[in-house]
């Protein structure tokens, strides 16, 4: 018996590793992050169902739309954020090869992951409250700071592998495992840039709650807020999955259940590193953040690219 390929693709998009898997795993990662940071701070931390309870509660709450805001934009932006993140997930190799993979899908994923940030900016901007506006300006400032180092750090492995295809880059690193060690600086640059993209400590400047209340989400409540939080959680899965695919060789040539287990283990390790960064550091100012990204991360990733080009010539 053969299964209809369209049905198979629908299952891929909606259930695994598409929407439902991303939701469940994103909520799990949120809990994992909170629990690990609680343990590091010597406290008990939230129970395992915490992220789920938060989302259900927000979904069941009243949605308030302020009079002053741009109603249509205000309502549709959370769905755009979720749609962009889920689409990016379809291009990543998660348990086997990606659903669609082509030359240049690395660039597509990077730009799809920029869309949630742009929706955060527009969300703050269209709520027109002063705190939300300041928060959204900070979102954009931060975007210009971390986006370039992130892209540069992902270009290094692409040059070394000689391809713009995420699955082929992963295949290259699976075949030549020692080269992963040569990518450690770019790996850390990508981790820090991902921390900025996810707006976590030390780069949670856009929604720094003791400075500007709730940042870009100040006016959001109920269902719309729940979808934004869900988009951030999913972005964590996709960001960790992207770093896993580019730097750690994705599934390491396996497929099926073993591939999924390897994916889960490696993304958990990446999220653990992100949590460690979050717990170790306090929030920096926006100018310090921009300076850090442009004076340390960007030159470091450019040096990595240079090194990769030389290594590539050496290999022939």
């Amino acid at each position: 018996m053969t299964i209809d390929p369209i049905l198979l693709a629908l299952i891929y998009i909606l259930i695994f590793p598409g929407f439902i898997f991303l939701t469940v795993y994103g909520l799990f990662l949120q809990w994992f992050d909170r629990k690990i940071s609680a343990v590091m701070q010597n406290r008990v931390g939230p129970p395992w169902y915490q992220a789920l309870a938060d989302i259900i509660k927000l979904l069941s709450k009243e949605v308030i739309i302020p009079d002053a805001c741009d109603t249509v934009m205000f309502k549709i932006l959370p769905y755009f954020a979720i749609a962009a993140v889920v689409t990016a997930a379809l291009l990543l190799p998660i348990w086997t090869d990606a659903l669609c993979s082509f030359q240049g899908d690395l660039v597509v994923v990077i730009y799809l992951l920029t869309i949630p940030t742009v929706t955060f900016f527009l969300a703050g901007w269209s709520s027109t409250s002063p705190y939300a506006t300041i928060g959204s300006m900070r979102v954009l400032t931060q975007l210009f700071a971390y986006e370039v180092p992130m892209m540069l750090s992902l270009i290094g492995p692409a040059i070394l592998a000689g391809t713009w295809n995420i699955s082929e880059i992963a295949g290259f690193f699976t075949a030549h495992k020692p080269y992963m060690l040569a990518q450690i600086p770019a790996f850390f640059v990508a981790l820090m840039a991902l921390q900025g993209k996810l707006e976590r400590v030390p780069f949670d400047i856009p929604h720094a709650k003791n400075e500007i209340v709730g940042g870009q989400f100040t006016e959001y409540s109920g269902r719309l807020l729940a979808f934004f939080y869900l988009a951030v959680d999913m972005e964590m899965v996709v960001g960790a999955g992207l770093i896993n695919a580019i730097f750690l060789g994705a599934t390491l040539g396996t497929a099926g259940i073993l591939g999924a287990v390897i994916f889960l283990a490696k993304t958990l390790a990446i999220v653990f590193l992100l949590t460690l960064t979050k717990v170790l550091m306090g929030r920096v100012r926006i100018d310090q953040m921009v300076r850090f990204c442009w004076q340390i991360l960007a030159p470091l990733s450019m040096a990595q690219i240079l090194f990769d080009i030389f290594l590539k010539f050496r290999l022939g």
Binding site: R34, A38, Q41, N42, R43, V44, G45, P46, P47, Q50, A53, D54, I64, Y131, K209, N210, V213, G214, F217, T218, E219, Y220, S221, L225
Partner: peptide
């Protein structure tokens, strides 16, 4: 604070009335 840890009941301090 970590000593009393309200987060184990799921309570989080939010800074905007909307949340």
């Amino acid at each position: 604070t970590p000593k009393y840890d309200l987060e184990r009941f799921g309570a989080v301090l939010k800074s905007t009335p909307r949340h």
